[in-house]
Amino acid sequence: MSTNGAGRVLVIIPAYNEEPTVARVIAGARQHAPQADVVVVDDGSTDRTAEVARAAGATVISHPINLGDGAARQTGFKYAFRRGYERVVQLDGDGQHDPACIPDLLAALRPGVADVVIGSRFLEDKGYKAQPVRRVGMILFSAIASLVTGQRITDPTSGYRAMTREVVSLYVTDAYPQHYPDADVLITSHFAGFRIIEVPVRMFQNVTGKSIHSGWRPAYYVFKMLLSIFVNLLRKRPRRREDGRWNLG
């Protein structure tokens, strides 16, 4: 159990009721990133996610109540920031993201050149096929993110990302959303002066058959994301102060 993360890598796995899959994700992360510490943020799961994750060798941080996907990731960032980790990788606990790609994300990370690395399922054809409705949403946000950042971003909704400590210092602030953090976070990062790149990754679809994108949620998701991006454009750009904290717009 490492307590000092200086110069080290933290793998953050947000998990909400992922008992069937989380152990496999942890094992994959430990196998492919043996130098990294693994922390699972259990977002108030009602199943045995926390016990299973602990048994699989991860540090487990459990929210006593369900806060949302973004808040779970942010708890991991706060932990990483305080413990002094230099690099962070986040991947989902549902097994959608192939842990074998962790080294690719970390290898691409370079402060000042590539501060945020997105694992993209569309950069190369790795066999990912989205449902038509989701595909339309992904194309829309890809177009918006590319337009705003002035570079091609093929997969802004990917939750498979790596980032430097400087980026984490921004993500621990209230600029990081509690729900659905994806395209808007990239835009915030871009406005804060960070460089974003993508590397191809393999993703599996619908591992457990459940998704945040069901029922009315896709409509709310699209609305929230468009509003969030729109107000981001109206805000002043985040500026990093001398003491390393952020002035948010």
């Binding site: 540090t59 941080i61 459990s62 929210h63 806060l67 708890t75 305080r82 509690q178």
Partner: peptide, 21 residues
């Protein structure tokens, strides 16, 4: 208040994970 609850819950979760250790 929602932001405060979120931040407090995160603090509590991080702190109690250390107590467990």
């Amino acid at each position: 208040l929602t932001d405060q609850v979120k931040n407090l819950t995160q603090e509590l979760a991080i702190l109690s994970s250390q107590v467990v250790i």
